[in-house]
Amino acid sequence: MPPINLGLVGFGKIARDQHLPAIAANSGYRLVGIADPHSRLDGVAHHASLKAMLDATPALDAVAICTPTHLRHSQARLALEHGKHVLLEKPPGATLSEVDELSDLAERRQLTLFAAWHSRFAPGVAQARQWLAGREIRAVEIEWKEDARVWHPGQTWIWEPGGMGVFDPGINALSLATEILPRPFFLRSANLAVPSNCQTPIAADLAFSDVQETPIRAAFDFRQTGPQTWDIHVDTEAGRLSLTQGGRRLSIDGRVELEAEEREYPGLYARFAELVAGRTSDVDVAPLRHVADAFLLGRRKRVAAYVE
Rank of each mutant, 00 (worst) to 15 (best):
M1Y: 13
M1P: 15
L8M: 12
F11L: 03
A15W: 01
P21G: 11
Y29E: 10
R30M: 08
A35G: 09
D36I: 02
P37H: 01
H38G: 11
S39W: 01
L41D: 00
V44E: 07
H46S: 09
P58I: 07
P58F: 08
H70E: 05
H73L: 01
Q75A: 07
A76Y: 04
A76V: 04
R77F: 00
L80R: 02
L80G: 05
E81M: 09
H85K: 04
V86E: 05
K90W: 00
P91Y: 04
S97G: 14
S97K: 08
V99A: 02
V99M: 00
D104N: 03
D104A: 15
T112F: 07
A116H: 01
S119F: 05
S119N: 11
R120F: 02
R120T: 11
F121L: 10
F121I: 09
G124H: 11
V125S: 10
A126V: 13
A126Y: 01
R129W: 01
Q130V: 01
W131A: 12
L132F: 08
G134V: 11
R135Q: 12
E136P: 11
A139L: 03
V140T: 13
E141F: 01
I142A: 05
W144Y: 13
K145V: 05
K145C: 12
E146H: 07
D147P: 03
T156Y: 06
I158F: 00
W159D: 06
E160M: 00
E160G: 00
P161R: 01
P161H: 00
G162I: 00
F167T: 07
F167N: 06
I171F: 10
N172L: 15
A173T: 12
L174V: 12
L174F: 12
T178E: 09
I180P: 10
L181D: 02
P184Y: 04
S189R: 08
P195W: 03
P195L: 02
P195S: 05
N197P: 09
T200D: 03
P201V: 02
A207S: 12
A207K: 03
F208P: 06
F208C: 12
D210Y: 10
R217A: 12
A219V: 10
G226L: 06
V234F: 08
D235Q: 14
R240A: 12
R249L: 13
I252K: 05
D253W: 06
E264S: 13
Y265Q: 07
G267H: 12
E274T: 14
L275E: 15
L275A: 13
L275T: 14
V276Q: 08
V283Q: 11
D284V: 08
R289S: 13
R289T: 14
H290R: 11
H290I: 11
V291I: 04
A294F: 01
F295P: 02
G298E: 06
R299Q: 13
R300Q: 15
R302F: 01
A305I: 05
Y306P: 00
